[in-house]
Write a protein that binds this DNA or RNA. Structure first.
Length: 572
RNA sequence: CGAGAUGUAGCGCAGUUGGUAGCGCGCGCGGUUCGGGACCGUGAGGCCGUGGGUUCGAGUCCCGCCAUCUCGACCA
């Protein structure tokens, strides 16, 4: 490819609003162009990267026995009503009417379409296990896209769905997919990625793992134990609370005036927030009150609470339930019937804490859990915080951040049951197959590689997914020797099957060299009057910066070796 | 969806108390340079986001709307 003809431009300034490294470089190096919030076009180099990543994904999915299919982007309302998701999903699902007035939607995930394809097609246990997958555009009407390709509305995704006749079969297949995912990320050149236990959300099912690129710019919070290897998304992470020691004292009611929040009460009584117990109030979908108590230095984990309540929850209007906002406490609390009360493990064994007196302007002091909260069950409803210990091995936990680059779920029978998919079994009975589903966002993978490997000069592509393997920069193309030799070398590279980006522009050396670094090809080849005088070409490795000279006669073989070595190094 | 900010040339930005629209980069042409974003000359390129209002006159002041970005909520 000749750079003079390549669609897209390299720009010097950091585009307005771009903050993430990957976003900045993708824009500056001419890989993407924004069309609307969260909607991008991929320019030729980015499309080449995307296709290389897709090829790796296909190889791994095919190796698992996966069969590539294509589901529709647009689906009718009825299909999603079968699973119940037409109603349970809110604005993120983009709905519209076709010309006949029929309700349609844009696919944001394809469980329904997968079951639709498999039901009455896959009919016997003899056809199982089977896995179908596609690589296709998804649309999710995100409330807030951000970070270039990291969080978008429209994106290319590989999604796979497997069907099984037993949990054991799903378990073993799930493990194989898990291993394949590790290989995929490794092959696209990522190193700093991990898998964490995660929440299965409304996908249903129990077991779920997320693959995360560990980076400070990530939007997910992760909890990691460096000793035993425990890794979990903050949403589901367990931790052992930090203990607060204190001798039991006599219960008192104290005036606290207008002090309502934990900060205000702590300031008023001159105590630490670890010596308080706060209440957080929610309402279930059916309107029942949920009161959660936890120590003042911990925050509520709404996902854990929702799981205990077995309902979606939203912040409650305390007045509606006759509660005194700011003075709600776990002693002498009168609640409506049907109300749920939960106590976090951080309160267990806690002495001498302050909690609301359930009347305006008063709090209780010196409350003791063992004395004043008898017959109370303690649950895990708090977010892990810095300094907590691992619930598996007791080591101090590390909190970090990550970008979700893939996820795998055990779906169970949620979709096969609701949609009525059945297969016949050896004994003549029928069963609803157990499903697994497995996703990878391609665009996010592109951005993740840049996040991990990009340096102060620009993108650094791994050889396996670089849009071109070699960036060829002849300097002084106006020099007749350089021109003749450069075009000769270019042709030889093409003939040898090397993917080469040829900078045939009549621009200064500085422009060519900085552009090559910004665009990130793994190998740069420079020829100039200087190197030609020695009969050599200069090779520079983008990642290491290593530079050396090779004779023209050896250049092609040297490049082929380098390409091969680098691929092998990544894929091992 | 809550909070904050920004919309002026392809990109980055300036535009004073309201008085006919500017700079840098990029792009075209001519020339001199040329191994780390060269220089000179010369061109092209704007419904100042949008609708209304105030005014003799609005990029500038007022109101509405739209778009985009950032933080948060949400994120199947």
């Amino acid at each position: 490819m000749k750079l003079s003809k390549l669609v897209g431009e390299r720009i010097k300034e950091v585009p307005n609003g771009a903050q993430l490294k990957s976003h900045i470089y993708l824009l500056r190096a001419g890989y993407i162009k924004q069309v609307s919030s969260g909607i991008f076009s991929l320019l030729p180099p980015a499309q080449r990267v995307s296709q290389k990543i897709q090829k790796i994904i296909r190889e791994e999915m095919d190796a698992l026995g996966g069969q590539e299919v294509l589901f529709p982007v647009v689906m009718p309302r009825e299909l999603w009503e079968m699973s119940g998701r037409y109603d349970s999903i809110q604005e993120e699902l983009l709905r519209f009417k076709d010309r006949t007035g029929h309700d349609m939607l844009l696919g944001m995930t394809h469980e329904e379409a997968a079951v639709h394809m498999a039901m009455n097609t896959v009919k016997s246990h003899e056809q199982l296990p089977c896995m179908i997958y596609q690589i296709q555009t998804k649309y999710r009407d995100e409330a807030r896209p951000r970070g270039g390709l990291i969080r978008v509305k429209e994106f290319t995704m590989k999604d796979a769905y497997s069907f099984h006749t037993s949990q054991e079969d799903l378990d073993s297949y799930y493990k194989k997919v898990y291993d394949a995912y590790n290989r995929i990320y490794k092959r696209i050149g990522l190193k700093n990625f991990i898998s964490v236990r995660s929440d299965s959300g409304i996908m249903g099912g129990k077991v779920a793992d997320e693959f995360m690129l560990v980076t400070d710019s990530g939007e997910d919070r992760l909890v990691i134990c460096d000793k035993c290897g425990y890794k979990a998304n903050m949403e589901v992470a367990d931790g052992v609370r930090q203990e607060v020691e204190s001798e039991e004292q006599e219960l008192q009611e104290v005036f606290t005036g207008n002090a309502k929040t934990i900060e205000e009460v702590c300031h008023f009584l001159e105590i630490d927030n670890a010596h308080t117990v706060k209440a957080v109030c929610y309402e279930t979908e059916s309107g029942e009150l949920v009161v959660a108590f936890l120590r003042g230095d911990y925050d509520i984990n709404e996902k854990k609470l929702a799981k205990l309540v077995k309902s979606e929850i939203k912040i409650a209007d305390t007045d509606k339930f006759g509660l005194v906002a700011g003075n709600i406490g776990c002693v002498n609390l009168t609640l409506p019937e049907n109300a749920f009360v939960f106590y976090d493990l951080s309160i267990k064994g806690l002495n001498n804490f302050v909690t609301g007196a359930n009347k305006d302007e008063y709090h209780f002091k010196n409350v003791s859990a063992s004395r004043d909260l008898q017959d109370v069950k303690f649950d895990d409803i708090a977010l892990v915080k810095e300094g907590d210990h691992c619930s598996v091995c007791g080591e101090k936990l590390t909190l970090t951040r990550g970008i979700e680059i893939g996820n795998i779920f055990q779906l169970g029978t949620k979709y096969t049951k609701t949609m009525g998919m059945k297969v016949s079994m050896p004994d003549g009975s029928t069963m609803e197959p157990i499903m697994g589903c497995y996703g990878i966002g391609v665009g996010r993978a592109i951005a993740s590689v840049i996040e991990e490997k990009g340096d102060e000069k620009g993108i650094v592509w791994p050889m396996t997914i670089a849009p071109w393997q070699v960036h060829f920069c002849p300097l002084r193309l106006d020099d007749e020797n350089v021109e003749v030799i450069s075009y000769e070398l270019y042709k030889k590279m093409l003939d040898a099957g090397i993917e080469v980006l040829f900078d045939d522009r009549a621009v200064s050396a500085g422009v060519k060299l900085t552009d090559s670094e910004l665009m990130g090809m793994p190998i740069r080849v420079v020829v100039s009057p200087k190197t030609i005088a020695n009969g050599t070409a200069e090779i520079t490795m983008r990642e290491s910066g290593e530079t050396y000279y090779v004779s023209f006669a050896n250049l092609i073989n040297e490049l082929l070796d380098l390409i091969d070595d680098q691929k092998k190094q990544i894929e091992e």
